[in-house]
Amino acid sequence: MAKVTFKGNPVTLIGEEVKVGDTAPNFTVLSNDLKEVTLDDYEGKVKLIAAVPSIDTGVCAEETRRFNEEAEKLENVQVLTISMDLPFAQARWCAAEGIKNLDTLSDHREGSFGKNYGVLMEELRLLARAIFVVDSSNKVTYVEYVPEVSTHPNYEAALEAARNAK
């Protein structure tokens, strides 16, 4: 299992660690308009999935803004940012920040994504910071479990993986 800390303290991740070469696990989350969304809704596209603890915090906000900017330049790639935030809070934050090029999704109801991707922090019931790139046939091509949740992921490596996925 990935070793992850939150502000220097070790956390327990619930679920199995996802690895490159795995078939991407399905999940059920909520869109900002409260509709159920699954991995199948993005069939035929490359998915860059960013798991974040809360969209309305410094590093998560910067990460989401960065991926929103980059999403415009990526062909056949859908960027998803998933957190435990309520859909209403995500919608409000996206409207205030002008986020239009990616989907923010809420895992608050069941923790389905968090459990299936091994990023649900047991102690906090928040998602650990992680990046997954899933190709159009739902094979995982890139994984980064960020060792310290309060730090940034490797943007360049994730974006390169998304550009190279088919």
Rank of each mutant, 00 (worst) to 15 (best):
P87C: 13
V140F: 12
E160K: 14
E69L: 04
T57R: 00
T151I: 13
N68F: 00
D22K: 06
F6H: 11
K45L: 08
Y117E: 11
E36P: 13
V133F: 03
Y117N: 15
F6E: 09
K166V: 02
N32I: 09
F113N: 10
G8W: 10
S106I: 02
I49R: 00
I49E: 01
V46P: 00
K115C: 15
P147Y: 03
I82L: 05
A61N: 10
P53D: 15
K3D: 14
K166W: 10
R92C: 05
G114N: 03
D56C: 01
P153A: 02
Y145C: 05
M1P: 15
T64G: 04
Q90T: 04
Q90Y: 02
L127C: 05
L120G: 00
P153R: 01
G111C: 04
V37A: 15
V29H: 03
E160N: 11
N116D: 13
A24E: 01
D41Q: 12
A2R: 11
D40R: 15
A165G: 14
W93H: 02
G98R: 04
T57D: 01
A96M: 09
L48C: 07
A50C: 14
G58W: 10
T141N: 13
L13E: 02
N9V: 14
V119M: 06
M84T: 08
G15K: 06
N32P: 15
I55L: 15
G98I: 09
L30G: 10
D85Y: 00
E36K: 15
G118R: 06
P153I: 02
R129W: 03
D85V: 00
Y155Q: 07
N26E: 12
R65N: 05
N116H: 12
Q78C: 07
T12P: 03
V20K: 05
E70M: 04
A61H: 08
